[in-house]
Design a binder for these strands. Structure first.
Lengths: 174, 174
DNA sequence: AAAATTACGTCAATGATGTTGACATATTTC
DNA sequence: GAAATATGTCAACATCATTGACGTAATTTT
């Protein structure tokens, strides 16, 4: 074989030149790439557990937010996920048929379908959350837990601000 | 109309209960969700620029890494992206036909196809990087630039370590 | 009470991105 | 010359998203 120095290219966090602290006008390639690789692994581990149930990332997001907000309506879930109801319908059908999620008609407004996790669904949601929690907890330990608020602040600042706040912005659902 | 308090559910960073600082045994839902929303917006803005060229996220990643490592081989790019050559082939074909990327046979090993951006490709790559840079720079400003190394450290800790098999980081103890 | 709106579901077609598996071609190495 | 390597390509398929159209039940408006 040739001296095919595959280079450090295969090693995400150690890309050559990545350590330069955001020069003058140069994009912050280090953080841009770290976000890419970090997020990939952050969702990659749950993906493998989900696959054992025949589920994907979309199913993860749905059971996560139902777990977080039991009794969520379909419309509210669509607002959070920012997908179409047709996209949601597919994964929701899988989750209901697999007995991970159940629907109850709203008490006040009986058109609404309130979403709840079954015990089975909660077990899966907890398992997935535990994976992601542990990964985050390890990273928080590494930087020192006193710096966790700064991580939260940083991530919050990455989020588009004009979205929530007011119902002024028309919801994209036709 | 009913008093349909659509709730704060549509407002990612202000989900009720999200502010609790990782209780005893409870998953760190705040950071888990912040990562989700932050990454979505982080890639969402570039997506809209890419769409004007008829491209998607996969094209973004390809031109990003070719921009970062001009002369990269196809095999190295596959290692970084962790996708199959068939997946890469499709987007690479788009980029080459659109004159954003060009290939040159390797000087030493003429089987290799070294990948370079054209001026057009570099312009697009720079535009995309500028978007992501500005978003990150804003967030770094918000927390104070002196804390940027902690962000980098945190994100690096989220990444799977066993992948590289590279000499770069300390070898995993014999 | 009739009409309009809302919440949700569903059918159908399409696109972007990923996968496996098989095979071809050129080049380099043994 | 044979074997291994780097790349390309054809074909089938899965997941997750989209748009558009239509239907049904329940609520609100008039």
């Amino acid at each position: 074989m040739k001296s095919t120095v595959i280079s450090a290219a295969a090693v995400p966090p150690a890309l050559p030149g990545a350590a330069r602290p955001a020069g003058p006008g140069l994009p912050d390639f280090e953080l841009i790439e770290l976000l890419f690789f970090a997020y990939r692994d952050f969702v990659g581990e749950p993906d493998r557990l989900l696959a054992k149930h025949g589920f994907g990332r979309a199913h993860h997001r749905v059971i996560h937010f139902i777990n977080r907000h039991p009794g969520l309506t379909v419309a509210e879930l669509l607002d959070i996920l920012e997908i179409t109801k047709q996209s949601l319908a597919r994964v929701l059908k899988d989750l209901i048929q697999g007995d991970f999620v159940e629907q109850k008609a709203g008490a006040e407004d009986r058109r609404q379908r309130l979403l709840f996790l079954t015990d089975k669904g909660r077990a899966l949601a907890d398992g997935l959350a535990a994976m992601q929690h542990q990964r985050i907890a390890r990273a928080v330990m590494a930087i020192g837990p006193e710096h966790r608020p700064m991580i939260a602040r940083f991530l919050a600042e990455l989020i588009d601000k004009e979205r929530g706040a007011a119902p002024a912005t028309a919801s994209p659902v036709p």
